[in-house]
Amino acid sequence: MAIRTGEPAGRLARLRRTSGNVAVVAVAPYLFIKVLWAFGLFVPTEEMGGADWRAANAATAVLAAVGIVLALAFSRPWGERLPAWLVALPVWVGTGLLVPMLLLAPVLGPAAMNRDQDAGAPDFWIYEQILVMISLVGAGVGLPLALLGYARARWPEALGGPLDRGEPAGSSRALQATAARLLAVGCVLLGAVKVYWAAGGTLGIDPDRLDGRDIWWHLLTLSTGVWALAGAWGLVVLATRRGTRWFLPPMGAAWISSGMLFSYSVYNLLTLTDMQQPAPEHPLAAAATREAGAVLGVLMGMVVLLVLHDRRRAPGGDGGTSAPERVRVG
């Protein structure tokens, strides 16, 4: 009986190409708008023409350009020859930014447009917002799918198979388990605070800014809390090798959660300007949760890397050998 191994590989190659192209086309309008805003053109309000806002838009324009390069790398043969860290770092940050936002986009998009209209933004701002939302959704769908095909070709051990593949010589499992449990405590505390605030709790909220808790703030706060809790679960399961049979669910939870906690903390720090509407949280509470998220995200990412390193060297892993069905994208 003949076994046709080329057909799945061909489907995977087409998935990579198509998803990468979708991401490039989707991100292009976002990059264009952000470049215009960075130069102070077509800004919807006078305050967004200030130096701080323009710097923030320039930073996000750079992120958009990186996203386009990544989409091309995921869908082209030369992408598999890039150094692993050069791919993994922006992917970690990008998935942390995009995946949570993609889940909230159907609600946050209209809410943001209504809020800006109430604030007196001009009509053309609505069309810019629509383009931005289309870009974010397209990137949030296209980039992860292209990454899925890319990772299956380059790092198959990072996506599939059973949770426990055995321990290699010199395994750091004891260190992983200890670090994961400590970090999980921090994630649970941060998640509980965020969920408490999202549910209407006022401890740690500035009494003079209670009216600033709009639907945008509530959903983003709840999203951070939920992802922090999901990351705590995923990290402990990965490090202890207990809790589920399969590797992908806890890996996805820990990867997205760590990237989300880090990237949103850094983004909030970059957009912390005097011109912006003050956050409802008390400044000390906002700073504490923001810094905690950044530190937890980085340390969680380090534990995930330790897990992946041991998994690749494990008796049931690939041991660094190339897969016979490695996909090449033409």
Rank of each mutant, 00 (worst) to 15 (best):
L103G: 12
P106N: 09
V237S: 00
W53E: 05
G293R: 02
T240W: 08
L219M: 15
A64V: 09
H218I: 08
P122Q: 04
G140E: 00
V327W: 00
D206N: 12
A239E: 04
P278L: 09
G201K: 03
V24F: 03
A58G: 07
L222V: 14
A9Y: 08
E325T: 08
I126R: 15
G301N: 06
A61W: 03
L41T: 05
R242Q: 15
A286E: 14
R4T: 13
V132Q: 05
L102K: 04
R245Q: 12
R245Y: 07
L104T: 09
Y30D: 12
W233G: 12
T95I: 15
D318N: 11
A192W: 01
L296H: 04
G186V: 00
P168S: 08
D116Y: 12
G316W: 13
W125R: 12
I126H: 13
M133T: 11
A71C: 08
G138F: 03
A253L: 14
R115H: 13
T18P: 01
A286L: 11
Q176Y: 01
A28E: 03
T60S: 06
W78T: 04
A121L: 11
L175A: 10
E128M: 14
L308N: 05
R313C: 14
A59T: 13
Y267A: 10
A177T: 09
A230F: 04
M251Q: 04
D214N: 15
G259E: 00
A139E: 06
T202N: 03
G204I: 07
G94R: 00
G259R: 00
W216S: 15
N114F: 12
P283Y: 07
A292C: 07
R14L: 09
E7S: 13
G330R: 14
A228F: 03
E47Y: 08
A28T: 10
R242G: 13
L219P: 02
L145V: 01
G234M: 01
V185M: 06
M302G: 08
D310Q: 05
G293D: 04
A287E: 05
A292H: 08
A51F: 10
L238N: 04
P278A: 07
G40M: 03
R14V: 05
D164A: 02
R11D: 10
L220T: 10
R152T: 08
E291K: 15
V329E: 08
W125Y: 12
R326W: 06
P29K: 02
L272E: 09
A2D: 12
L305T: 06
W85C: 06
L108A: 13
P110K: 09
V69C: 03
G200P: 01
P283E: 14
G231S: 07
I33C: 00
Q117W: 10
L183G: 00
